[in-house]
Design a protein around this nucleic acid. Structure first.
Lengths: 221, 221
DNA sequence: CAATTACTGAACTGTATCGTACACTTATTC
DNA sequence: GAATAAGTGTACGATACAGTTCAGTAATTG
């Protein structure tokens, strides 16, 4: 509501709301609510967190939450969607510099495995799994915002490598899927199921090296 | 309570309880409770199912449940552990007959992928993921009873194939992990997250064929 | 039949939580 | 300072659910 500007001379990029005569909306509080909701929902699920708990964590009254977010469902949805948008940072692709392909793949692999086995992402996967059970469509968007985008990027990387003659002829998407699959190995699922903790740096490195070797054995030019 | 036998001359393997003078325990009812609990918990999680609902589904009074199982937690634990023990049937290894290795691997693969993407197993994975979040140890036992046992079997199969000269020298467990990883591909995780439905027979077959080809390219003698 | 034990139905206690109502305070504009 | 809207705290209503109590019924043994 209220995307309209009642006056004329304000920068259109400024927070367009809070234009009334009364006390302005405290954006910091809303941000705190969103942050608390993200954090709590992520680690404890939709049930398992009471609205009042979020309010307390955000240093905000419960009523304020109900004023700004319709209710618990809406707050959850917003928190999750925000997280989706922000997720899967570019970090993993820091290595676009033109080094040896094997090194690039290793670097990507270490970033990728570290990410998908991190406590943060693992929690999120669990949350999405729960959502899926309840027939929500949130996990769809999560998948597209995260894993799918990463896959596309990797496919581009491989395609470029192929055109540079570093790899033999391949279907980039298929090869990317296979590489990612090799990288996930048993670790991702085991982490999600809580069978193991997040593997340490050394373990990841060893595993990634092996995965890269296997992959290059399949696709090296 | 009451593991002691008040008399002496009964077979120790027989159901030792139900030895009173009064009305005997109705084993069918207990079985019905366990079945209902399994089914409901699996599809809807620990919260999400009320005890009275289980009682109704089993055609049993709530009090009966509390008499025989300590409470909701205990019932849940028993139901899950029973499911673990029964899971991962031998079906997947029906193909121990000595056919061509490629055919054996394909057959195993089709069974395996079909199983881990089935609605039943997917529900169970989700349940275990939720349990993991709450720090339960149930998923550990699930993993050992299911995936880990399957892995060991496959490793034996590969080991035998290697000794028959059908595969080149390999580390059976490592190779088994790699094959399983290839089989899971993107499908298992996508199913768990509800991004896709269980793939159909044709899709599975295509995917498995590809995975087997890749695997044999790596390990064929 | 009497004793004994399993089981039922319904009522009840206690707790947790969603969402709302109300009286009040605080920050802002005119 | 008035008007106005955001935010607070407390209390409340409604609902759901775990677990218990109790009076009564059903099935078994001696």
């Amino acid at each position: 509501m209220g995307q309209r500007t009642s006056r004329s001379g304000t920068t259109p990029t400024a927070p367009a709301d809070a234009r009334g005569r009364g006390r302005p909306i405290d954006a910091a509080k809303l941000a705190a609510v969103r942050a608390a909701a993200e954090s709590l929902f992520k680690t404890r699920g939709f049930d398992g967190v009471a609205i009042e708990e979020i309010a307390a964590a955000a240093g905000v009254s419960k009523v304020t939450i109900y004023k700004h977010f319709g209710g618990k469902d809406e707050l959850f949805r917003q928190a999750v969607e925000a997280k989706c948008a922000q997720y899967w940072p570019e970090v993993v692709f820091d290595t676009q510099v033109r080094t040896d392909l094997k090194l690039r793949l290793r670097s990507f692999g270490i970033g990728f495995v570290g990410l998908v086995t991190s406590a943060d992402v693992v929690s999120f996967f669990r949350l999405m799994a729960m959502q899926a059970r309840d027939g929500s469509d949130l996990s769809q968007r999560f998948w597209e915002a995260g894993p799918e985008r990463t896959l596309q990027r990797l496919a581009h990387l491989l395609d470029a490598a192929q055109q540079d003659g570093e790899l033999r002829r391949l279907d980039p998407v298929r090869a990317a899927k296979q590489f990612i699959t090799l990288l996930q190995g048993e670790y991702q699922l085991k982490c999600i199921l809580g069978v193991i903790d997040a593997p340490g740096r050394a373990t990841i490195k060893r595993h990634v090296d092996e995965a890269v070797d296997v992959f290059l054995r399949m696709y090296a030019a």
